[in-house]
Design a protein around this nucleic acid. Structure first.
Lengths: 110, 110
DNA sequence: AATGTATATCGCAAATATACGATAAGTTTT
DNA sequence: AAAACTTATCGTATATTTGCGATATACATT
């Protein structure tokens, strides 16, 4: 039985949805906020700033990384994460397009 | 055991995450696209446009509605959905703020 | 009243996500 | 080479999401 039909939608829709999914948990929004504040994006501090276990934070970081929104770099025994600006900009632009497409429709119905 | 710690994050993070969650499935992105194209946002057509069963589409519509992104109105035997422009604009603005906060950090690390 | 049509909801199965502790893997420091 | 430290991964429990068919609900038409 065909469980999960995500592939049956357009590439654009899938990409935007994947991006949104990466942002769909408050922990991951928080992580991005933390990364934007720190001079050094060295993490571990992230763990201290969040009400989650280290392993859970690591998992959220992995998801953000797999979605392409952040980059990770190993520095000695630690990991340094930072925002993948390019990817973020691309998605923001896609999202803006969707938004403006919706805006055109404003007031035509209901 | 405390399963799901979403409530332990800030209201802003939770709201943004909830918004992103509503957009985190290609079917729901597609629905918004369809709504933006039709003169009349009368639905049922949505079911025909998507590779999903009627009940599944109805569920996605419900989620968008509960997230506040669309409004539903009963017109005779049918349902008419449309974009809740106000809510959408509010979330877009929040998201833009996050984006610009991230942008400030650009190039400071990694 | 009976039938047809459109949509929502219920109940269920499968898939995914969330969270944690334990442990592994990799680096320093001693 | 041991010990200490940081982070990733594994295993597991629970929660949530996704999807469907069946059924209920609500209006229209006959």
């Amino acid at each position: 039985m065909a469980y999960t039909k995500k592939e049956e939608f357009g590439a654009r829709e899938q990409a935007l949805a994947a991006f949104a999914k990466a942002l769909s948990h408050p922990a991951r929004i928080s992580i991005l906020g933390i990364l934007s504040k720190k001079e050094e994006c060295i993490c571990g501090e992230i763990v201290d700033d969040l009400p989650l276990a280290q392993s859970t934070v690591s998992q959220h970081l992995k998801e953000l990384k797999e979605a392409g929104l952040i980059l990770g770099e190993t520095v000695g025994p630690r990991s340094c994460y930072c925002i993948n600006w390019k990817a973020f900009e691309r998605f923001y632009s896609e999202f803006s397009q969707l938004f403006h497409k919706l805006k055109e429709q404003q007031g035509r119905c209901c």
